[in-house]
Simulated scan of single mutants.
Amino acid sequence: MRVNKAAGTVLGTLLFSSIAQAGITSTSHVYEVNGIAYEGYVAYNSNVEQTRGTVMIIHDWNGVDGYEIRRAEMLAAEGYTAFAVDLFGQGNQPQSMEENRQRTGELYADREEFRARLMGSLAQTSEIPGATDKVVVMGYCFGGAAVLEMARAGADTQGFVSFHGGLGLPEGQNYDSVTAPLLILHGSADPVSGMQDLASLLDALQEAGIEHHAQVYGGARHSYTVFGSGDYDLAADRASWSALQAFLARQLH
């Protein structure tokens, strides 16, 4: 979780500036799920003849903002088409910690609606500029938990990546319907989902016979990838980004 993703750091500013010079084309993308409008964000590299594949990004608990936009443009700079999806609705982004909890709590309490928004957003990947039929889904914090929800729901993708997500298994769910490999990237000092939760998740994936990979970053706390946050860990951020790149190259080849 994070309070202010838009603040960033000098490192983030320099990174953003270098990306802006790489021929990145970006635009908002409004779409509907069950008659409700949602507003996501698309980025792709106009300097490459063919995208390397599509990456769907699921936002943290305060919705799509500068953090997801930056990550989308980082992926576009690597040659992928990135689509940061919206699970809260156009014009319905949280404005406070209380609203963050409210929006995510509503989805956690209504798993059917949660999955409808996730699957509806996934269906939109075929409509975005530079789309491909191969998609990997990734997410941070709340988005990491949403990635696992999609996996359990049997979403048809080429892979799932959770960055410091909530790892608990909701009552009545299992991993029997997972269709693609999972990559779990987590900090050993995460107070939200600790090592016991990670071990339980890996046991469940092993029991279900699902291909899975995990990297644990010693001492990294919950929001270790979030530029400017108190939890930010440069070494863990760089290592997890490298792990993502290797996973994407393998699953979207």
Rank of each mutant, 00 (worst) to 15 (best):
G66I: 09
G89E: 12
N92H: 01
A77Y: 01
R70W: 05
E73F: 04
D60C: 06
G91Q: 08
M56E: 08
R71L: 04
G79K: 02
G66R: 14
A76G: 12
V64Q: 07
N92L: 09
Q90D: 11
Q93R: 03
G79T: 01
G89R: 11
A84Q: 08
L75A: 01
V85M: 14
Q93N: 04
V64L: 11
I69H: 00
G79F: 01
T51L: 02
R52F: 03
V64M: 11
G53M: 02
I58A: 14
P94C: 11
E73P: 07
D60K: 11
A76T: 11
T81K: 09
T51Q: 07
R71F: 05
G63D: 00
D60G: 14
E78I: 01
R52A: 05
Y80R: 05
G53V: 03
A82L: 12
A82G: 08
A77F: 07
I57T: 01
E68N: 05
I57P: 07
P94M: 14
A82W: 04
T51P: 06
L87W: 07
F88A: 06
E73Q: 12
G79V: 08
T81G: 06
G89Q: 11
E78W: 10
M56V: 05
T51Y: 00
F83A: 00
A84G: 13
A72E: 02
D86K: 03
F83E: 00
Q90H: 10
M56T: 00
M56D: 04
M74N: 00
G91I: 10
T51V: 13
F88M: 05
E78V: 07
M56A: 06
V85F: 10
L87H: 01
D65P: 13
H59W: 08
Q93M: 06
F83V: 03
G66V: 06
W61Q: 05
V85S: 10
L87G: 06
M56K: 07
A76C: 12
L75H: 10
N62E: 11
I57S: 06
F88W: 10
A72K: 05
I69R: 07
G53C: 10
Y80F: 15
F83W: 05
Q93V: 02
A76Y: 03
A72I: 02
I57F: 08
I58T: 04
G79Q: 04
Y80D: 11
F83Q: 00
V85Q: 05
A84R: 11
G53E: 04
N92D: 02
I57R: 09
Y67F: 15
G89F: 08
H59E: 07
I58D: 04
D86M: 12
D86H: 10
A84H: 09
A76F: 09
T81Q: 08
Y67W: 14
F88Q: 11
G66H: 12
T81C: 13
H59P: 01
V64C: 08
L75Q: 06
R52T: 00
I58E: 00
H59I: 13
Y80W: 09
M74I: 12
W61S: 12
E78M: 15
Y67A: 11
R52M: 14
A82T: 05
G53T: 02
G53W: 01
G66A: 10
V55A: 15
N92W: 03
D65W: 00
